[in-house]
C-alpha cells in the first residue's frame, strides 16, 4: 500500500515536472528575457539594447537599469489608448462570440448522436487551414471588388461598393470568426454533461422554458462560459494579425503597437515594457477566473 502510494506519487511528480519544465522553457525563460530587456535602453547595436549589467573583465560591477520605458508607457497617451482599445475590442468581440457560441454549443449538445459528431467536426474544421490564410480569405470577401460587394452589385442592391474592409467592424468579424470554436467547445463540453432530467424537473415544477434556461441551464454552464470567454478574450487582446489585415487606420490595438515598436522602430526595450504591462493586465482576469472556478469547485 505504502509502496504503491509512493510510486503513484513519484509518477505524478514526474508528470508535473515535465509540465513545469515545459512552462519554464517556453514561458518563464523568455519572459525573464523580456523583463530584462524592458529595463534596458535602446541603442544601435546587436542586440539593439544596452546591457543590464556593467562588466569589467567579466566581473559584474554595477546594475544599469532604467524605468524610462515604463515611464513613457504611463505618460504617452498612445499606449494607454492602445491598451484600452484592445481591451474594449476584445471585450465586445468576446461578448458577440458568447452570444453566437452559446446557442451553437447548446444545439450541438442536444443533437442526436450521429449529427452531433458531424456538427462538432464542422466547428473544428477551420483549424485544418492556416489561420493566416483564413484571414486573407476575408479580405477577398470584404474588399471593394470582393465577393460580397460584387454579389450585392450584381443583384442591384447597391450602386457603389460598400466599405467593408479596413473597418472596426471587419476586426470584430475577424475575431469572432477566428475564435468562435474556442467559445463553442468548452461550452459544448459543459452543456453536454447537463442532465436532461434536470430540465424536465424544472418544467415539471412549473418553470416555463425561458425560466428553466435562466435558473438551471445557465448557472450550470457557468464554468463553460468562463472558460470560453477567457479563451477568446486573452488572445483577442494581444491580437495582431486580424487588426493588421482587416482593421483600418483607426483600429488601435496593443498588438499592432508592439509590432511597430519592435520591427519598425527597433525599440526592443519599449516593446518589452509594453509586453510586460500587457501580461500584467491579462493576469488579472485569469486570476479572477481561477478564483471563481476554485470557489465553484469548493462549493460542495
Amino acid at each position: 500500500m505504502i509502496a504503491r502510494g509512493t510510486s503513484a506519487g513519484s509518477g505524478r511528480r514526474l508528470v508535473l515536472a515535465a509540465l513545469w519544465l515545459w512552462t519554464a522553457i517556453v514561458f518563464f525563460l523568455p519572459f525573464a528575457l523580456v523583463l530584462k530587456i524592458s529595463f534596458a535602453e535602446a541603442q544601435l547595436s546587436v542586440p539593439p539594447y544596452s546591457a543590464l549589467f556593467e562588466r569589467v573583465d567579466g566581473v559584474v560591477v554595477g546594475l544599469k537599469a532604467t524605468l524610462a520605458n515604463y515611464g513613457l508607457l504611463a505618460t504617452d497617451a498612445l499606449y494607454f489608448k492602445a491598451y484600452v482599445g484592445s481591451l474594449g475590442i476584445a471585450l465586445i468581440a468576446t461578448t458577440i462570440t458568447l452570444i453566437l457560441g452559446y446557442p451553437m454549443a447548446y444545439a450541438i449538445a442536444r443533437a442526436p448522436s450521429p449529427r452531433r459528431e458531424v456538427l462538432l467536426i464542422l466547428v473544428m474544421l477551420p483549424f485544418w487551414t492556416s489561420f493566416l490564410v483564413r484571414i486573407y480569405a476575408w479580405i477577398g470577401l470584404l474588399r471593394p471588388s470582393g465577393v460580397i460587394n460584387t454579389a450585392l452589385q450584381a443583384m442591384g442592391l447597391i450602386d457603389a461598393p460598400l466599405v467593408l474592409l479596413n473597418t472596426q467592424g471587419a476586426v470584430y468579424l475577424g475575431i469572432v470568426y477566428a475564435y468562435l470554436p474556442f467559445m463553442v467547445l468548452p461550452l459544448y463540453a459543459r452543456l453536454e454533461k447537463l442532465d436532461p432530467a434536470l430540465l424536465e424537473a424544472a418544467a415539471d415544477l412549473g418553470a416555463k422554458p425561458w425560466r428553466t434556461f435562466l435558473s438551471v441551464t445557465l448557472p450550470l454552464s457557468h464554468p463553460g462560459i468562463l472558460a470560453g470567454c477567457l479563451l477568446v478574450f486573452i488572445p483577442a487582446v494581444g491580437e495582431f494579425v486580424i487588426p493588421e489585415l482587416l482593421g483600418g487606420p483607426d483600429t488601435l490595438m496593443i498588438g499592432k503597437v508592439l509590432w511597430n515598436e519592435f520591427f519598425s522602430n527597433r525599440d526592443w526595450p519599449m516593446s518589452a515594457a509594453a509586453t510586460v504591462v500587457l501580461l500584467a493586465t491579462l493576469i488579472a482576469p485569469v486570476m479572477l477566473f481561477q478564483s471563481l472556478r476554485m470557489r465553484a469547485e469548493a462549493r460542495p
Binding site: 434536470l198 424544472a202 415539471d204 415544477l205 412549473g206
Partner: peptide, 26 residues
Amino acid sequence: NMMFQSYALFPHMTVAGNVAFGLKQD
C-alpha cells in the same frame, strides 16, 4: 408532479432552494 428516478435535484441550489424552486414558479 413527478419524482424522478435519479431525483434530478438541482446541484447548484440548497435543499431549501430546490424545494422553493417550484413554489417560486407560482
